[in-house]
Simulated assay, not measured.
Amino acid sequence: MARSTVRPETQDRHAEQEVARRLLDSAAQLSYDPVAEVDWDTPLDKDFHGASPEWSTLYGTAYWRELNDAQQKELTRQEAASVASTGIWFEMILQQMVLRDMYTKDPTDPRFQWALTEIADECRHSVMFARGAAKLGAPAYRPRRAVMELGRVFKTLAFGEAAYAAILVAEEVLDVMQRDWMRDEQVAPFVRTINNIHVVEESRHMKFARDETRKRLRHAGPLRRHLNAFVIAVASYVIVTSMVNRNVYAYAGLDTRRAVTEAKANEHHRSLMRSSCSGLMEFLASAGLLTRPALFFYKRAHLI
């Protein structure tokens, strides 16, 4: 019997192209237009939360128990808007990194075409998040200036597995939150729709990010693996700790200093983050990206 003359790298490339074709087919069959799908016209009903109350940074604290129902709902609306604004910030970074990665690639390759499809999705998501935050009655929450500048450096310099694994961390953390929010009837219906759209479409993006991370690490030596593990962990820490802007408490009518203090010590929220990120941490461990320096930052962010 004749042996196959197809090289392993050629087989890998064909397998990666097949994954990209399946993602393109999925996008063609199941994608949404937020302009048409989300109810933008019905006025905000303040009887609803903006996010599942259990996901509030103050849930379970003494301060939370002192808040009346209207204050709790206003806080979750502001927190949801902050998470959306942070999502916009990172999606803009993501788009630039993916575009730069594809700049010299073959446009006939299904992987190239999927990358552009993902960027188109992210553009729609950013507009959807922006309109959602505005409807929640929130200001333009932005990360701290230092974080914005770090993001500028990261999106310019990050490449390969560092870029795709950081994308994966941001998407996975947001995905877990939104899966809870989209099912929770306490959450405003239009927010649930936004979350559902994002969860469905981001599942494809996460598949691509995982595959790209594994591919880029295939021939990585120990030094490169350890360096990128550190970069990914630092980026993850910055992203996660920027999700809820401290200004949400003032806009919700709370004492910012007390709210920040209790939120930082909130073991319920820490436990929720750790349990929700167990699958993500397993993936990073399997990819050899949970080095000791990296673990320090994941623990600081309460992801592990």
Rank of each mutant, 00 (worst) to 15 (best):
118 E>M: 06
122 E>A: 01
129 F>Q: 03
119 I>Y: 08
97 M>F: 07
140 A>D: 13
115 A>W: 00
113 Q>N: 14
155 K>P: 04
148 M>S: 12
92 M>Q: 15
128 M>Q: 06
130 A>W: 06
123 C>I: 14
150 L>E: 10
83 V>T: 05
153 V>S: 11
156 T>D: 14
91 E>A: 08
144 R>Y: 07
143 P>T: 08
115 A>Q: 00
106 D>C: 11
130 A>C: 10
116 L>H: 13
159 F>W: 14
135 K>W: 05
107 P>L: 11
145 R>C: 07
165 A>D: 05
131 R>F: 10
113 Q>E: 11
129 F>G: 04
97 M>N: 06
137 G>H: 09
117 T>E: 07
139 P>S: 15
133 A>V: 06
95 Q>S: 12
100 R>I: 05
118 E>V: 01
94 L>A: 10
136 L>C: 07
146 A>M: 06
138 A>E: 04
150 L>K: 09
86 T>R: 00
95 Q>I: 13
82 S>R: 00
118 E>A: 04
139 P>Y: 05
152 R>Q: 12
92 M>W: 06
129 F>E: 02
108 T>N: 09
150 L>T: 05
94 L>N: 04
166 A>Y: 02
123 C>V: 14
95 Q>G: 13
113 Q>H: 08
141 Y>R: 04
149 E>F: 15
135 K>Q: 11
97 M>P: 03
